[in-house]
Amino acid sequence: MLSSSYRVLVQAGIVLILLGLWEAAVFSGLADTRTLPPPSEIAIHIVALLGDQDVLYNLWITSAQVGLAFLIVAPVGVAIGLLLGEHEYIGRAFRPFFYFLAGVPKSVFLPVFILTFGIGFTQKVAFGIFQAIFVLVISAIAAVGSVSPTLIKVARSYGANRWQLYSQIFLPAMMPVVIEGMRLGMIFNITGVVFAEMYVARAGIGHMIATWGMSFQMPQLFAGIFLTAFLSIAVNEVLRWYERRVDKWRK
């Protein structure tokens, strides 16, 4: 039985060993420093980038795009999923479209988004939403199926109208499954925003990463990759924390 502090210690050790091996590989000449800078150098650049107003501004732009896209897509996706999952006729008519479109790679639509929304903030948000909405809707449809029919009967027997059924029974009962979908949706959302930034943009961490890559600034490029990873992990952890709170009753 491992205590949790012991486990964290072991995990930190594993990370340190891996970074050490990486460092050793670079200094022993096993890896080419031109394409793979050592972690120590990347760390120095991460610190430097975090002190750079320009980088912070671009990180902020990316975060704002991702955040706004999420604030729009989460309620909209859940609402559409609830309607498609719960309403028999609407569901049967429209569900197939979502299932089919979910399988199409969203990146091929990027030029359409550029032509429609330009290359600025709005286009990134729109593309983030577009990337995330399918997984959210589909998980919300699955969440509707997880709602206990008894609870629906209970609420109906107490005279709940359709709106009360949705808000008082379906939404809270769907939450544990929906929050999983939100985490997936968030990953798609970040991928969409950063990808769109890398393709064509004036700002954003994706835009910076693409620029560093094209100008062979490897330490900055890797530092940017790490920063993007930290951002995604932070977002995911926040959602997991919320999930544990919501999930408390599902024992």
Partner: peptide, 30 residues
């Protein structure tokens, strides 16, 4: 017609995310 007819169901008919008190209040809240 909840004012006239109330139902007590089989087990697990409580809303699991609400407290005991909120569950009892639920029909009144509606």
């Amino acid at each position: 017609r909840p004012q006239d007819v109330g139902v007590i169901f089989q087990e697990s008919s409580l809303l699991p995310w609400k407290t005991a008190s909120e569950n009892v209040e639920f029909p009144l809240a509606l």
